[in-house]
Simulated scan of single mutants.
Amino acid sequence: MDIKCIIQKNANRLNRWWRLLATAFGFILFGFYGLVVLSTLWFSLLRLFIWNKERRNIIAQQSISLSFKIFLWIIKLLGIIGYQFNGLEKLKQDKSCLIIANHPSLLDVVLLASVMPRCDCLVKGALLKNIFISRIIKTAGYIPNAEANKILPHCQNVLTNGGRILIFPEGTRSVPGQPIKLQRGAANIALRCQADIRIIHIECSSPWLIKGQKWYDIPVKKAFFNITVGEKITINNFLHDNTTVAARKLTRYLTALLSKTD
């Protein structure tokens, strides 16, 4: 074997071991800061001193966004991942709309929330059973999907006040190589609240933190996330049909947009 090939092979092996150790450090840091500093200490202070719920939600969301931004900067500096945003200026113009994205990795919400200081999220209701994450969800005013009768009023209130709601309509992380399948929840919220939709497409060069993958299953090459802020869908174009038919059409349209790979 050529000496250059041997050197390159050893270098790749060392780089992969380094990314494994750095990833372990990143998860420990994320867990300690998120669950202890942010949830237990900072959010407790917010609840104690900021009595206005809406103001408290906004400060909590800004805190989460800043924390995610710092976390991403650290793991990028350590060489764990790379990422870039395209069309980010479009998000600055968006108010009273849904942010709809595909969901290839566990890191998706961290990436998107890091560039949106004010953004509500539709989250799994099961997370409310976690004592630490539950505090974060409640303090930030995120919208759990556990109580269906409260979702629409909550969403309508956020949108009426100029807020944005981040939704992953797949409901779970996608599986590489398989077509994505969207649930109709996002379409129904958009139609019933008459909210426009901003599309965001996320691509990852090397599958990492995908569904069913362990954190220590490090890809051979460093994962690189390419996040593109796409077109904005005007919901009025889908309101001429009854809600059931319109939800089907809108869901098919969203599926086509989020399935694009170019």
Rank of each mutant, 00 (worst) to 15 (best):
F30H: 02
F85R: 00
A187W: 11
M116S: 10
A186E: 04
S114T: 05
I189D: 03
G185H: 04
P117V: 02
N237I: 00
I81R: 03
A101L: 04
H240W: 11
Y253R: 07
L35Q: 15
N236S: 12
L209K: 04
K232I: 01
A11D: 15
W208L: 10
C193L: 06
L66W: 11
D196H: 08
C97N: 02
D120L: 07
Q84N: 13
D120C: 12
L209C: 01
R47H: 11
I143W: 11
P117R: 00
I137E: 05
R248N: 15
F32Y: 15
Q62R: 14
A113C: 12
D94R: 13
I58T: 10
E54D: 14
T243G: 05
G212V: 08
L46E: 14
R198N: 12
S39W: 03
A186D: 04
E231V: 01
F132I: 11
T40A: 13
I202N: 10
R13E: 10
C155D: 07
I218A: 10
F132G: 07
N188Y: 15
I74H: 05
F49V: 11
F27N: 11
Q93K: 15
E203T: 09
A186V: 00
T40V: 14
V229H: 11
L72S: 04
F30W: 09
A11S: 15
